[in-house]
Design a protein around this nucleic acid. Structure first.
Length: 815
RNA sequence: GCGAGGGUGGCGGAAUGGCAGACGCGCUGGACUUAGGAUCCAGUGGGGAAACCCAUGAGGGUUCAAAUCCCUCCCCUCGCACCA
């Protein structure tokens, strides 16, 4: 027997797999398909344990499904655009392109070294103009459909780094890099109208199995609320103020209105109000404050009286108008009707400024209407003090008030969403150029499709300042108008990298990609993705954008499905010493070091064994050693099996039962929620059992070899290299990848005796061996005559016998 | 505050109404050995000499039977957070 040498075995098989193009996906419309996808890596320097976990889980699924005769697509690519490449350019004085491609080479090598069964022929690199050309193409299609527009909007601006930051780079209101408080800066930006798809994105029909929390997070992010717009006339300004409310039933309890300090009417108010000095002071104060999330939570409600009045649409009463710091311009109409009796925020504000509180909803538990409330009553109830609406249940009252308002033209049904349009402009170099041209004559026009791609110029000076470096690349900026041919200028902003990742999975699903983004029939065959695997951090952004993109492509007739990912698995983080592995914490374990020390199979095994896929995994040096020992035992056992020559059949049946049990267990645990940790535990049990069995020498060679082959097959998806080696050593010619997953028989059909638990009055008193075919009565007869149970039963009357087949029998005795 | 998930040996974790702690780590003892941080064997929730008793965050309930279902409470993690 040779010593187990993982490096030699693994590299040998990886080469063979590559030479035979074993994992190449083939479009076979007549075969049932399985598209297994893992979120592609961002091209930072190298892969980390999180990637290893993600990709190993995917590889087990892929290899398992192949053995179950699915036609598999298991692709990989690189998310290659993005800010870190520019930061590296500044810091290391290296061009973003060189940096990115160098990293891709490293990552590719590392993935191959892990032995993941990728179809390398379909690799996608998003910074390749062959790919981003189609970002530009889709942008133009979206533009034609009216889904793209430009507007001035506040962007996250870091005054110290002199650059715009993406939302996700703003942590608690501060810059992720330098910690400076992020400011808001108005810039012209390109937007895609994702809000037009809000309703369809809320519909998760077509999604089979996603973690509930991801769906909840998306629903919250979209944030639909149904209510009513109500119009208050302001005579002094001769303006109508529209407010949004979900509680139209409380309309008669309105005692004042509140505008956001950013509300457009504020300017006019400043002109007309006698209180304008104070208002100005207040607004100054609000705008000066840059607030972090924490601040907003702790901040006290403050406001200023405009001394201007609005007219209540129903009672015609004069309602004071205030400006308050607790009203958001970004939501609803930027103005609210305040009902302090039934809204806690309004209640606090009213108390502070001595504004009246009018109760209009009666808590059914109140015996009488209280004089004073100590907090707002926000639950439903019966409408009171509401004129013609008195006596209505508040839920029904919402409808009634709304209908009445509609009749008198003072309001209408309205739905608002938290979701904002997707800002895709980035003032950066390393991204897809937006295919827009500014022409003196024709205005803003899209580039002609035949002129794509608009290539990113290589020669550029990256400064890290707030403007796109492309602005200073004359060769890039100067162009001809695609409509009239006169001199024009290009847009210099590039696209958010989330555009790249919104359709990469379609590109994979297509072999023929010359002159088109993807092949429609092949994409319709492979899609939707049957199993998507990735981190929870993409719960909203990437997954929402991809769903949106797919729906638009459906509407444009590019694809025949609306949901890209049917099943989603979010794997947990890899942590060490209780914290996520990170350079700053100094607790990083490098996968390559581990592969050097133990081999890829051991690393894969450990990462699958230490925890179920969706929970966080605590790294353990001792744990990986345990897996190393296990594979060494398997290796040793293999040679003992191979050289075994006994023909004693005494325990053959027992061995058959064991292999059936483990095949059944592993199959079921993979099928059910990918419980790879218990699969491995079951295989370890089998190895422990077989070890003993071999020293007893009571099984026959043929049966043993047969069982061992089955075992190699089920271990294969987890640790493919060592399995290929053992497989070939048994004179098998096929790759295991092309073998069938073993079948199993139900235990009852092969097992003669089963050990069941014996309970007396619900207490376990021991075990008994019985045939699986016996019934409760027959088992009871056995127990009655069994010495160890006699003393519990003798002289007592049995009032019930509960037998759970093959598990337990409970005898209930009279007291 | 709201929403979701979770709390089981010294540790990672099994068991989703049916023998709690599978499997692995660690630990203890033994074998082999010049040596062992290699390998193999045995043991390992707590109490007890034993029969047995007690144990799944705390307390109550349902059931022949509860880690699992129901109620009350405590703690941890994540997400959202002035959303009108």
């Amino acid at each position: 027997m040779e010593k187990y040498n993982p490096e030699e075995i693994e590299i040998k098989w990886q080469k063979k797999w590559e030479e035979s193009k074993l994992f190449e996906a083939k479009y076979k419309p007549e075969k049932k398909k399985f598209y297994i996808l893992e979120m592609f890596p961002y091209t930072s320097a190298q892969i980390h344990m999180g990637h290893v976990r993600n990709y190993t889980i995917g590889d087990v699924v892929a290899r398992y499904k192949v053995m179950n005769k699915y036609n598999i697509l298991h692709p990989i690519g690189y998310d290659a655009f993005g800010l870190p490449a520019e930061n590296a350019a500044i810091k290391q004085n290296i061009h973003p392109k060189e940096w990115t491609y160098k990293n891709i080479d490293t990552i590719r090598r590392q993935l191959k070294r892990l032995g993941i069964s990728y179809c390398w022929e379909r690799e996608v690199i998003t910074c390749d103009s062959e790919y981003y050309k189609w970002n530009q193409f889709f942008f133009i299609q979206f533009f034609k459909k009216g889904l793209v527009y430009k507007k001035k909007a506040p962007a996250n601006w870091c005054p110290s780094c002199q650059t715009v930051l993406a939302n996700e780079q703003v942590i608690n209101g501060r810059c992720w890099r330098c910690g400076e408080i992020v400011e808001s800066k108005n810039l012209e930006q390109w937007f895609i109208k994702i809000t037009e798809y809000a309703e369809r994105l809320l519909d998760f029909y077509g999604i089979k199995n996603w973690p509930e929390r991801v769906i909840t997070m998306q629903k919250n992010w979209i944030g639909k609320s149904e209510g009513c717009e109500i119009y208050f006339f302001i005579p002094e300004l001769n303006e109508i103020l529209s407010v949004f409310t979900t509680r139209s039933d409380t309309l008669l309890g309105v005692t004042y209105l509140v505008l956001s300090p950013y509300h457009p009417l504020v300017e006019k108010i400043l002109k007309f109000s006698q209180n304008n000095k104070e208002i100005e002071k207040f607004i100054e104060k609000i705008k000066r404050k840059s607030l972090t999330v924490q601040d907003i939570l702790e901040i006290e409600k403050e406001g200023v009286d405009t001394k201007i009045f609005a007219i209540h649409p129903i009672t015609q009463e004069k309602i004071p108008v205030w400006i308050g710091n607790y009203v958001l311009m970004e939501y609803g109409t930027g103005a609210v009707m305040a009902v302090p009796a039934h809204d806690q925020r309004d209640f606090e504000f009213a108390q502070k400024y001595n504004l009246p509180i009018k109760i209009v909803i009666k808590n059914p538990e109140w015996k009488e209407i209280p004089e004073k409330l100590d907090k707002a009553y926000e639950e439903p109830g019966i409408m009171i003090n509401s004129g013609i609406f008195d006596g209505f249940d508040s839920e029904k009252g919402k409808e009634e008030v709304r209908k009445y308002l509609e009749k008198i033209n003072k309001g209408k049904k309205a739905i608002y969403y938290k979701l904002k349009d997707w800002c895709i402009s980035r003032q950066r170099y390393w991204g897809t150029p937006i295919p827009i041209v500014y022409c003196q004559k024709c205005g803003v026009v899209t580039e002609k499709e035949e002129n794509l791609p608009i290539e990113l110029p290589y020669e550029v000076k990256i400064t890290g300042r707030g403007e796109s470096p492309l602005k200073y690349v004359e060769k890039f900026v100067k162009c001809k108008c695609p409509v009239c041919g006169s001199d024009a200028e290009r847009e210099t902003d590039t696209m958010d990298t989330f555009v790249d990742s919104s359709w990469y999975f379609l590109r994979y699903a297509s072999k023929d990609i010359k002159d088109k983004p993807f092949d429609k029939s092949e994409v319709n065959y492979w899609m939707p993705v049957d199993q998507y695997i990735g981190g929870i951090e993409h719960a909203i952004l990437h997954l929402l954008y991809s769903r949106f993109f797919t729906k638009v492509l459906y509407d444009l007739g590019f694809v025949d499905f609306e949901e890209p990912f049917e099943n989603l698995l979010c794997q947990g983080m890899v942590i060490k010493d209780g914290a996520k592995m990170s350079k700053s914490k100094g607790n990083v374990v490098d996968p390559e070091d581990m592969i050097k020390k133990y081999g890829a199979d051991t690393l894969r095994l450990f990462i699958l064994f230490a925890a179920p896929p969706e929970v966080d995994l605590e790294w353990s040096e001792k744990g990986i050693e345990g897996c190393w020992r296990f594979l060494n035992r398997v290796w040793k056992l293999h040679f003992e099996v191979k050289n075994y020559s006994e023909q004693n059949q005494e325990n053959d049946k027992k061995l058959k039962i064991m292999i059936n049990r483990v095949v059944k267990g592993v199959t079921e645990d993979i099928e059910k929620e990918f419980q790879f940790n218990t699969c491995i535990a079951k295989m370890m049990e089998f190895v422990n059992f077989l070890n003993k069995e071999l020293s007893d020498k009571k099984v026959s060679r043929d049966i043993l070899i047969d069982c061992w082959k089955k075992f190699i097959k089920i271990l294969y998806p987890f640790t493919p290299h060592i399995c290929e080696e053992m497989w070939k050593d048994l004179n098998e010619k096929n790759f295991l990848f092309n073998e069938n997953w073993p079948s199993y028989e139900e235990i009852e059909t092969i097992e003669e005796k089963i050990s069941i638990g014996v309970q007396i009055n619900g207490k376990i008193r021991g075990n008994i061996e019985v045939s699986p075919h016996l019934n409760a009565e027959q088992i009871y007869e056995l127990i009655k005559n069994c010495e160890k149970f006699k003393k519990f039963i003798e002289g007592k009357k049995i009032i019930n016998k509960i037998y759970i087949k093959n598990k337990i029998i409970n005898l209930v005795l009279e007291d």
